[in-house]
């Protein structure tokens, strides 16, 4: 088990290296650079050249990459072109807000998707199943920013139940912090739950076909016990794996939702950094998001094996 985990972690190293190359090249593929983003297209060429030199943008790409990578290895992501502050400080500042939103969004989506997916998967072809399946299809088609705007209009502007925008750290004012979390978390949760519900449905559907389900019925066990102890419990390993993949949608969704609700998390940093061509910031964020995705999926894979006694990892 330990050896397996260690092996997988080692395997993540080349993956992260590839990710660093991609994130480095990727931002530079976006037309324009930090200087033109700052000064505009029709600015004085001498000033532009001077700033480019100051940021080191005139140096060969490989050299820039080398310096950057060496810094990253030491945990130093460089300095933001925009604010001239160390990137690691900026990001660390934003993490609590993002974790709060992502966590709440994940809880919302699990609360919606798991019961819906189980209900649909246990009785395929039933009216409830078609209802849930079409609802998820609809949900997949509605973009998060549109859904968020609707929720904002309805719950906050019309019914005045919760505030529509802003963020207060939980430590400062828990009640207000939670009130402010409601709409963004609901939007994020609703945005990813169709995806998760479909994965749950197919995992449950597949497990329900296994011979141990009718046998459990023949033993006279209660339907509840069968759905939870047999179907859901056996679908759990594949659900955990599916959850790992859902993290990608969670990340992407949080970027949109944070922008929409003026939520000062790392997602806001992404949108801001891309518009401003803040190279170092975009690189750092891409690397962190990607690394997080790899880590979460590794954790899910290990959890999956722990949940299934038939899998013994070596």
């Amino acid at each position: 088990m330990l050896r397996y985990a260690l092996g997988r972690i080692l395997l993540a190293v080349p993956l992260l290296f590839g990710l660093s190359v991609l994130s480095f090249v990727y931002v530079r593929l976006i037309p324009g650079d930090p200087v033109t983003a700052m000064l505009g297209v029709n600015s004085n060429p001498t000033v532009v050249a001077q700033l480019r030199e100051q940021f080191g943008l005139d140096r060969p790409l490989l050299g820039q990459y080398g310096d950057w990578l060496a810094g990253v290895m030491r945990g130093d992501f460089g300095v933001s072109f925009r604010s001239q502050l160390p990137i690691s400080t900026i990001i660390v500042d934003r993490i609590p807000a993002t974790l709060q939103l992502a966590g709440a969004g994940l809880v919302v989506s699990l609360l919606i998707a798991i019961p819906a997916g189980v209900a649909a998967g246990m009785r395929p072809g039933s009216r409830l199943d078609s209802l849930i399946t079409s609802a998820t299809l609809f949900g997949l088609a509605v973009p998060a920013f549109f859904l968020g705007t609707l929720l904002m209009l309805f719950f906050s502007l019309k019914l005045n139940l919760v505030p529509s925008q802003g963020y207060v750290p939980f430590a400062d004012d828990p009640a207000q912090s939670l009130r402010l979390t409601v709409l963004p978390a609901l939007t994020l949760g609703l945005a990813i739950s169709p995806y998760l519900a479909r994965l749950t449905r197919s995992a449950v559907l597949e497990t329900a076909q296994e011979p141990f389900v009718p046998f459990a019925r023949a033993k006279g066990l209660a339907p509840r016990k069968i759905s939870i102890g047999y179907v859901l419990r056996n679908a759990l390993p594949s659900l955990v794996a599916a959850l790992g993949l859902t993290v990608a949608s969670l990340m992407a969704g949080s970027i949109v939702v944070e922008a929409l609700f003026n939520w000062p998390g790392t997602g806001r940093l992404v949108t801001g950094a891309v518009t401003e061509r803040d190279y170092a910031m975009v690189e750092a964020l891409l690397l962190i998001y990607g690394g997080l995705f790899i880590a979460v999926n590794l954790a899910c894979e290990i959890a999956q094996s722990l949940l299934d006694p038939r899998v013994r990892l070596t």
């Binding site: 023949a218 056996n234 949940l307 299934d308």
Partner: peptide
């Protein structure tokens, strides 16, 4: 009570 044809598949694997 039922005795299943393939107990290996009829027992809950987890």
């Amino acid at each position: 009570a039922l005795i299943p044809s393939d107990a290996g598949a009829a027992l809950n694997p987890v």
